[in-house]
Write a protein that binds this DNA or RNA. Structure first.
Lengths: 207, 207
DNA sequence: ATAAATTATACGTTATTTGTTTTATATTAC
DNA sequence: GTAATATAAAACAAATAACGTATAATTTAT
């Protein structure tokens, strides 16, 4: 039995539906369309997923988990100085790894009868909590100012990530990478510990 | 009776449906959705358009006409030297004024029963012919090399316009504007009359 | 105040989507 | 090779959604 998450058809369905959901949201995409695009029969689809909603939940969960994972990797690396951490996090956002498509979320929220809005809220809260924990952890090691509220930090990351994809700003800096670096510098020196190390300096000597 | 094209509701329906069609294509967008988004009742919709297909045709026609109009403006302006003409045409494309969304066209072509593919072909041919006429007109005035085939010219414009939106090229030049200017320079000096004027020089002294 | 235009609602009719089932066709393990 | 398993393809009933029309209520313009 190849019910496993490694089954190529299972993965194909996930990849295809993610692509379609991301572009058109939930309601505009049909199961048959997913099957057709994924090159998989309907039987196979219903072997893996009871219906479209559950598939969407799986897609969403995977995406959130991957985001948290990436965030954690960045946060917990002792050898990365604060400035680079900021840069990496913004790159993460701008690359869309952590971005849940608006179209997708809209359908999650605007169909109360599916009971998805509550489900999403719960998932988001969990992810939020995990990331706050990671940040506090980094704080306790002195990598960030101790009196900075974790919630405020995450909010700022989110806002600045939005700025990074702003076309006007982009035009100012030429490439997204440059804009990200500039913003990261700006942001980092407002959040580093008072005794803060300089950009580029390694911080492994804290212990 | 306000059946006229200037009726604000009529215009609202067109604007809304264009936005939705551009993003999701024809089949994924419903009449009720358009009405809802446009803030217009279904009755009003059906007063102006017999059905979604006819609406789509109208949207498409308006878009093509606007493209031709812009093209003509650029082409026929005596005070614009060839180099600037090229730049303006590429900006026109890159701004999307003339770009018909891929999603939209897909649905036009992939539903033979609607009889839209033939209709689109016809419209495109007409637009193509008009633009060729405009180009020949400009040729006869000596603004472009006389032995350049108009069809080839339009093809080149299209191809180069695609290049202008290529991310890799963009990264090379920073801003789309810069890339456009560079490509325009490159392209123009290959198409100007043998006795060609220099870039920036006005060409009104031909007659 | 009146007429015209528009919305809101309900409705029957199609068309589409869903999820199941059946049959045929590959794949895989032995 | 054969049996067991997995998948595809197609047909299907049931549910859902979209279409287009009709009517009454409401708004807007004059």
């Amino acid at each position: 039995m190849s019910e496993g998450k490694t089954n190529p058809r299972y993965r194909q369905i996930l990849a295809t539906s993610r692509r379609l959901f991301w572009k058109h949201g939930l309601r505009r995409v049909t199961v048959e369309e997913i099957c057709r695009e994924a090159g998989v029969s309907k039987m196979t689809f219903y072997k893996f997923f009871p219906n479209k909603i559950e598939l969407a939940k799986t897609v969403y969960t995977i995406e959130v988990d991957r985001g948290i994972e990436k965030f954690r990797e960045i946060m917990s690396n002792n050898d990365t100085p604060a400035l680079e951490k900021m840069e990496q996090m913004m790159l993460l956002k701008s690359e869309g790894t952590m971005n849940i498509s608006r179209e997708f979320l809209n359908d999650f929220y605007s169909n109360p009868e599916l009971g998805l809005s509550g489900w999403v809220e719960k998932k988001s809260r969990q992810a939020w909590q995990e990331m706050i924990g990671d940040f506090q952890n980094a704080q306790s090691k002195g990598w960030f100012r101790a009196d900075f509220k974790p919630e405020g930090f995450l909010y700022m990351v989110k806002k600045i990530s939005e700025m990074v994809t702003d076309e006007n700003l982009l035009r100012l800096y030429g490439t997204p990478q440059e804009a990200i670096m500039e913003l990261s510098r700006f942001f980092t020196f407002g959040i580093m510990p008072r005794s803060g190390k300089l950009a580029g300096e390694k911080s492994r000597d804290i212990t």
